[in-house]
Each structure stands twice: as structure tokens, then as C-alpha cells.
Design a binder for these strands. Structure first.
Lengths: 261, 261
DNA sequence: TATTATTGTTCCACTGTGCGACAATGACAT
DNA sequence: ATGTCATTGTCGCACAGTGGAACAATAATA
């Protein structure tokens, strides 16, 4: 009984960085994750900071020899955010040879007191599968991995310089999110469980990068019959209090739709 | 002068199948291609047939150590169809461990007179990047690869049993094509250079799997202002001859659009 | 109690779509 | 030649969906 209760989620951060051949993982294949959040009308991205290197980059992951690719991505996502059951989707494979540049990783490993040879598995060419995830900013608890010092949210609109091609990876993820936003109902994954119509609209406006008509937006969203209206919210604002809504469907599944905006 | 004229497209089929470690290629990573064609109101897929094995499968490819992933896919596509400048897009990475099954490949290698050991590189686990391509059926010249006996078109609506998870790969490719069809203008890549409005409509109907209204379809497509009307066609049919149209834009680039159907 | 900002809702003009109608046409049969 | 027939190009109309103005309701503040 007690054993069962004490049982922790495996830390599973036991990446064999010091083992030069990376045994146990598929060689040459990595996962890079763009984890989106939304807070104060701004899109956020979760980034890792590596100590003493001035380097910032996307959370990454590797695939175990007998593990599913998508499971490996879920695993990495859970470790960075503490969250389960998150909207997560492959969006592109970054496979250009020109991506290959071992220097940032070498710098990071050295900062960890290692002196990896040129044949260290982390310094070889990687093809990287890009995933993006949509999380509830208020629930995520960012935590760094073995190689990094900090894990924190950054404003998407104001990103610092990133290592390798991570900037381009984020841009492509945002493109994909934009394209999917009006075909699937995935936006809700970025909001807390209850929200106002204004919250939802400003989320859509931020992602799409354009103003939307207030009445049309409200009418369209409500006509989809996916929201449940709750009691009034009482904001601190000097104005009529808006209703709170809750998303009806399981927040996981994307409802296939004709473009609805 | 003559040398230049005689110069052939590199056969480049020199896959080192007999070399047990597959040197020169990225390990554990493959490309599988769903090549779509359209003929007589039917969607077609290009499949490879392996002699004496009763096995059918999708054209595949591997990535050279210093090659871009997308270039490797282009290379494979060109070798199977003889065509350059074809619409080609990544659509999903198949990375489940359960895909791993060396038996079909072993059978194929044996049929080629080889007796590969369990550690032969082609018998290891592969993660496969799925691409789909849209080609002009009338221009493609299917040709098999080193391991296969024949390369031919098959009716998508009536597929024979396929090896591994290739059936699911095709289904997912079709889903993606469907979703993209009304956001980008990629359908034209499946038609010859000139076509009638009826051809175009039946292409859309076949891909989407539903009847479309004739007058609305015509009005919508023409309003996009992407077609050039040519002289009349004269069909053998006992009815009014339809106009021929030609796609204006480069047939390569997908025009981003709000969903237009 | 008045003011102010925001929200919920209604209304109306405009656009786009589904669909029926009809004339035009090209091949074939008679 | 003439009539038949299937298909195509085009028009018109009813209907639905959208953008945007307008207005009343309301919650905090002055």
C-alpha cells in the first residue's frame, strides 16, 4: 500500500550524456519541442538556458531503442512541464545537413566539466523531428533537464538569440499552429479551464496576428456549440462583467471542422 | 560536346544492399513515399512489386550522410518517376516501435540471392519519414529500384494487401492531401497541363470523396483568377465541347488561401 | 447618483453559395 | 438534312453567413 503511494514518477532524466556512444537511444535522431503558452495576451515559448554558455534552446529529447517516437515526445514534454495529457503534434522534420554544427553542444558539455571527443554521440549529425505542444500556462511547472540550468517562458514576440536553427523551428511551429487553429479546435488548450469570450478572442487574435470582429467572433464560436456558459465572472474592471465559459469536449481531441473563421 | 550530350542522369541506384552496415547512409532513418496520380477519374498510387515474394510496398529511400532529408526524397521520387520539379511534401513521421518487423525485408533480400545476418542494416528498426507527391499521370515513367521487380500504378480505391504498415501510410497521406487541397492550390499538380472544368471538378470530387455543385465549383474556381481559358476542346462526346483551361501560376508553389471550397 | 468602459444582443446591408432553369453545342441516329 | 441527346456555359433567385453599427445592460469608480 505505502510502497504504491510513495512510488514516484520515474525521474527518467538519466540521459547517458557521459557515455560516449549514447547507448540505449536511436542514433542520429532527436526531438525538438516548441511548447506554447499564453499569458497576458502574449504567446510564450518554453526555453532552456545552459549555464556559463550564454546559450538558449528548445527542449529536446531522444528516442529509446524500443520506444515509440510519439511516446518519447510525450515523455520529454512531461519532464519539462510536469503535465500529462497535453495537446502535442508533430509538425516538421528538420533534416538539412547544414543544421549540423557540434559546437553549441560541445560548449554545453564542456561547461558540465566533460571533454567529449569528436565521436561523442551528441556531437554527430542529428535529424530532428519537430513537435509543438499547447499547454495551460497557469498549470505548467517548467523544469530544466540534466544539461541545462534553467527552464523558463519567453515572449514569442521578443525572442532572444537561440542556438542552431531553433528560431526557424519556432517560426515554422507557429505557422503550423496558425494553419491548424481554424481547422481544429485546439486553441482552448492554451487557456485555463474557464475563460471569457474576450480571453478567447484575444488568444485567436494573438495567434493569427490580426484583429477579429467582436460580434462575428462571438456568434461563430457560440454557433459551434462547444462552450458551456457558467456564472458571471466578476473582474476588477469598471464595466459589465463578462460570462465565463468552459470548453465542453475533452480538451485533448481536435474536432475536425471546415475552416470556421 | 558529345560527352555532355551523352551524359545521363546518374543511375544512383547504387544502394549498398549487400554491404551489411549500409555505410554512407544515415542509420535507422528511411523515407517512404506515397506518389499520387490521377487517371480516368481514379486516384492512383505508385507501388513496387518484389519478385518471388508476393510483396508490394511503397517506394522508399535512404538519406546519405551529407545529404538533406528533402533532397533524398526528391532523389527517390525522380528515380521512380523520371520526373523533376514535382510537388512533394513531408506529412508524418512513422516512429512506432511496433512497426519494426524485419521479415518482409529479409524475404526480399533472400529472393535476391542474399542471406543477410540479423545485424544487416536493412533488418534493423527504422523510423520512416512519410512524404507524398502529386504527379502528372501522363508524364510519369514508373521504374523499379534495385530490390524490386516492377513499379506500377494501383487504384487507391482498390489496393492489394501491402507490406508492413504501408496501407496506413497511404491513408494518412490521403487525409493530409484532402486537408491541404482546400487550403493550397495543389490539385493541379495531378492534372496534365490543359484540362476541362469537368476534369478539375471530378479530381476534387475524387479526392474529397463527395459530389460538388457544378455551378458553384465553376464560379469559385474562376473567381480565384488562376486559370487561363484556351481554345475549345473537341471531345468525342455527343455534347457541347467544353473549354480547355491551363493553370496560370508555376505549378510548383502552393498559394496560401483561406479554405476556398 | 453620474460616469465610463466593456459586454450581450439585435439589426441590416452585403457577399457568397446551392440549386434550378435554359440556351448553346457537338456527335450520333435516322 | 433533321431530330435526339448529353453535356456545357451562363443566368437568376432564395437562402445563409459575415462585417459592422447601434443600443441597452452592468460593474466599478468618481
Amino acid at each position: 500500500m505505502l510502497e504504491r503511494m510513495r512510488k514516484q514518477t520515474t525521474p527518467d532524466n538519466q540521459l547517458q550524456v557521459d557515455h560516449p556512444d549514447g547507448s540505449g537511444y536511436l542514433p542520429g535522431l532527436a526531438i525538438d519541442m516548441v511548447i506554447f503558452g499564453f499569458h497576458e495576451k502574449q504567446l510564450k515559448v518554453l526555453l532552456l538556458e545552459y549555464q556559463n554558455t550564454n546559450l538558449l534552446g528548445l527542449p529536446a529529447g531522444f528516442i529509446k531503442e524500443k520506444e515509440n517516437l510519439n511516446e518519447a515526445a510525450k515523455r520529454a514534454l512531461t519532464h519539462r512541464t510536469g503535465l500529462h495529457n497535453i495537446y502535442l503534434e508533430q509538425y516538421y522534420v528538420f533534416g538539412d545537413y547544414s543544421r549540423f554544427d557540434p559546437e553549441p553542444l560541445r560548449k554545453i558539455l564542456k561547461s558540465k566539466g566533460m571533454n567529449p571527443g569528436d565521436d561523442h554521440w551528441l556531437l554527430k549529425r542529428f535529424v530532428s523531428v519537430g513537435f509543438y505542444a499547447l499547454v495551460d500556462f497557469t498549470k505548467a511547472v517548467p523544469s530544466p533537464d540534466l544539461l541545462s540550468e534553467r527552464c523558463d517562458w519567453y515572449d514569442l514576440a521578443n525572442l532572444p538569440p537561440l542556438m542552431l536553427d531553433h528560431q526557424a523551428m519556432i517560426e515554422k511551429a507557429l505557422e503550423t499552429l496558425r494553419a491548424n487553429l481554424d481547422r481544429k479546435l485546439i486553441g482552448f488548450n492554451l487557456l485555463p479551464e474557464t475563460f471569457t469570450m474576450g480571453d478567447l478572442q484575444s488568444l485567436y487574435e494573438t495567434i493569427l496576428g490580426e484583429k477579429l470582429n467582436r460580434t462575428s467572433f462571438q456568434r461563430k464560436i457560440l454557433s459551434l456549440d462547444i462552450l458551456e456558459r457558467l456564472e458571471k465572472k466578476w473582474t476588477g474592471g469598471a464595466h459589465k462583467a463578462p460570462y465565463l465559459y468552459r470548453f465542453r469536449q475533452s480538451r485533448e481531441v481536435a474536432v475536425p471542422e471546415k475552416s470556421f473563421l
